[in-house]
C-alpha cells in the first residue's frame, strides 16, 4: 500500500512540469501500456500481500483470570467450541485463572458460597466455616448428574484440538508454582506483551 501512495505522489509531481492531458498521453503511449504478463504478475504480487496480511484463519484470544469452579467453565467451553469452528485459539491464564492449568489444583476448584445471591443459602449462613465445601460438593454433584464435562475433560479436549494454553510467568512466580505443575502442553514463560499481541491479531477477544 505504501508503494501505491508514493507512486501516486510521484505522478502528481510530474504533472507540475507538463500539462495534464499531455502528461497522460506521454505517460501512456500505446506501446508502453503494461502487458498482460506484467498485469498478471502484479495481480499475483497483490494476492500474495493480501494472503500475508490476512494470515488465513480466524483467531480468538481469551484472557482467563478466575479460578473458581463456575468461572473455570466459560473460557474452556468457548475455547473448545471455537477450535471446533476452526479458530486458532489462545487462552492466556493469569492470576487465579492459573489454577485451571495447574494439574493438581484444577481438580479441586471451589465454588464460593458468598457473594452470589443465586445461592440457596443467605450470605450470613454462607459465610460460616465449611460452607464453600458444601456448595462446591453440591455443584460437583450437579455437574456429574447432568453429564456436564469436567474441567479436566474440557482442558484435555481443548489441548487435543490444538488450543494453546498459556500460563502467565509473572503469576507463576507470584504463586510460587513450578512449570512442571501444569498440564503437558501448557505454554509457560509468557507475559502480557504476548497476550496483547494475540489480542491484536484476533477476531474475537474476551476477558473472563
Amino acid at each position: 500500500m505504501g508503494t501505491d501512495t508514493s507512486d501516486a505522489s510521484a505522478g502528481e509531481a510530474q504533472t507540475e512540469d507538463v500539462p495534464a492531458d499531455e502528461a497522460s498521453a506521454e505517460d501512456m503511449p500505446a506501446d508502453e501500456a503494461p502487458s498482460r504478463a506484467e498485469l498478471a504478475a502484479r495481480v499475483d504480487e497483490l494476492e500474495d500481500a493480501l494472503a500475508e496480511a490476512d494470515d488465513g484463519g480466524k483467531k480468538m484470544s481469551i484472557i482467563a483470570t478466575k479460578g473458581t469452579l463456575d468461572m473455570a467453565y466459560p473460557p474452556l467451553i468457548l475455547a473448545s467450541t471455537a477450535a471446533a469452528f476452526g479458530y486458532e485459539v489462545t487462552v492466556f491464564h493469569t492470576f487465579w485463572g492459573l489454577e485451571i492449568l495447574h494439574e493438581e489444583r484444577s481438580k479441586d476448584l471451589k465454588l464460593s458460597s458468598v457473594g452470589n445471591p443465586n445461592m440457596p443459602v443467605p450470605n450470613a449462613v454462607a459465610a460460616l466455616p465449611g460452607m464453600d465445601r458444601v456448595t462446591t460438593k453440591m455443584m460437583e454433584k450437579k455437574i456429574a448428574d447432568n453429564d456436564t464435562a469436567t474441567i479436566e475433560e474440557l482442558l484435555e479436549t481443548s489441548l487435543d484440538m490444538g488450543v494453546e494454553f498459556q500460563a502467565c510467568q509473572m503469576t507463576i512466580d507470584l504463586m510460587g508454582y513450578d512449570e512442571d505443575d501444569f498440564y503437558d502442553g501448557v505454554t509457560t514463560g509468557v507475559g502480557a506483551a504476548t497476550a496483547l499481541q494475540d489480542m491484536a491479531e484476533a477476531d474475537i477477544q474476551l476477558l473472563v
Binding site: S80, T81, A83, A84, N146, D147, L154, T157
Partner: peptide, 14 residues
C-alpha cells in the same frame, strides 16, 4: 447421548 454443551459440537468436529 447424555453429553451436554460443548461436547456434541466438539465431538462432531473431531
Amino acid at each position: 447421548k447424555g453429553a451436554s454443551c460443548p461436547m456434541p459440537v466438539v465431538k462432531t468436529k473431531s
